[in-house]
Design a protein around this nucleic acid. Structure first.
Lengths: 248, 248
DNA sequence: TGGGCTTGGCGAACAGGATCGCATAGAAGG
DNA sequence: CCTTCTATGCGATCCTGTTCGCCAAGCCCA
């Protein structure tokens, strides 16, 4: 327990595995390149291979184009063909670099998360009361979400893509968030803000789920920005104080 | 507060409006039939009009076919064309009766919910401890969900359809569930299981969100059936007891 | 009987995500 | 230089949800 809230928090459910997404892949097949018979494989591919360089650049352009178009037209409004055009290539080429449109979305989300955490950390103080820290944590997320309502909605949607690869990456994101919440809670237990026998993991999960769930009516316009924020604050309070009557 | 858990619980967010879905509609236009100029409208359409009867039968066949195919192939696997075929009509005809594929899903979900509630009520006893009742409530839902993992996933997905009509109906479902939870909690407050100043609505929401959120990793196979169940039980406990240390 | 209206149905067509097979261009090695 | 392999790229095509324009059948009223 040291570098609080910095490195990729421990995976929490079984969602680990699979290194970073930067590695060049062969999306077309899904398999990491068939080992080819028993002959000696020839090339091992240097990282500065001109083709790979080009590939990386293309990927970057795609991501950029996607990001822009998502913001301009929303996820559904951003056609793959449009993204491709802006990235300066044919639609089908995108699939050389990406498995599905959702994957582009997830890249985007991951970045948003990262930024939310950075912001939070910037103003965090580990010695504040735990519930206060939690509220600040959610506020940080809230701020960013509000700017991109559409992305938020679609993020929730992506969660439920049965297509394994997509779902897994989203779940990983979830796990990281839960991990961060756990760190906050753990600290709270050290400082005896929390009862000693509290299950930190389960508590973190509850908080996380609430924050996700509360976004749904908001994303659908049933709830105002600020109400969502308040709602999370209340949730933290409820969870802290408990709802049971004290004389039990 | 009398007929506990029976009639459509009070709508909780702004999601009210729009009567039942049984009314014959004009999906093609979206508008409930253009009022037509200033002339006197002729027909008022008796309920046993042969056309309407036929229509109802078609709708029923569509629903039936959809239900079956959803179960056989999952939501995404159940092609509209396939549904149409099984219902004995062309694909486009479906749209005379339904606004979108998701709508079929929602019909299905609504029924599942209804059944879950019925089951719960059957074994409920309003004098039991509140937390026990809540656990039973979630268990009842759990039982049904387990049978239809795919539907559950897609249900969550449907929540995030920006397409207003779909989202609204899902939100209504949510509201009803939250309403039922509120009734349980309210009763708990009467019986002084709950602290007097607890915000029943907010508590119900928290519970609901957690139950939804917890399903996501489960639906993606990261969590076993029983773990999901346990998780909900734990969540109820946490919320009841509160996580803050008592000496604060 | 026949006109006016409404509901239900159909095949064609469209849009958007994804796949396929072929083509090009670097790189490595002889 | 020629071969061989790999990473990229492309246009055609597929699949699926959805829309469109047209038509038949049912009901009502003259």
């Amino acid at each position: 327990m040291s570098t609080s809230l910095s490195s990729p928090a421990p995976s929490v459910s079984g969602t680990s595995g699979q290194a970073g997404p930067q590695v060049a892949r062969t999306p077309r097949t899904g398999q990491p390149a068939p080992p080819r018979a028993a002959s000696g494989q020839r090339t091992r591919l240097r990282a500065d291979d001109g083709r790979l360089v080009r590939g990386r650049r293309s990927r970057a352009r795609i991501r950029q184009a996607a990001r822009e178009l998502f913001r301009e037209k929303g996820f559904d409004g951003a056609t793959l063909r449009a993204i491709a055009e802006r990235a300066g290539m044919g639609a089908s080429s995108i699939y050389r670099h990406v498995q599905s449109k959702e994957e582009l979305l997830i890249d985007e989300l991951t970045e948003m998360q990262e930024e939310a955490w950075t912001r939070f950390r910037a103003s965090d103080d580990r010695d504040r009361p735990t519930d206060e820290r939690l509220r600040a944590f959610f506020d940080a997320q809230h701020e960013l979400l509000v700017a991109d309502r559409d992305l938020t909605t679609i993020a929730l949607r992506a969660t439920t893509k049965t297509e394994a690869r997509v779902a897994k990456r989203v779940l990983q994101l979830h796990d990281r968030t839960i991990g961060l919440l756990m760190e906050i809670l753990q600290r709270g237990r050290q400082k005896q803000h929390l009862a000693r026998d509290v299950d930190v993991l389960e508590t973190a999960r509850v908080l996380f789920h609430v924050s996700n769930g509360a976004r749904i009516p908001w994303a659908n316009g049933m709830v105002k920005d600020d109400a969502l924020r308040q709602s999370m604050h209340q949730a933290v309070d409820l969870l802290f104080r408990g709802v049971a009557s004290r004389d039990a």
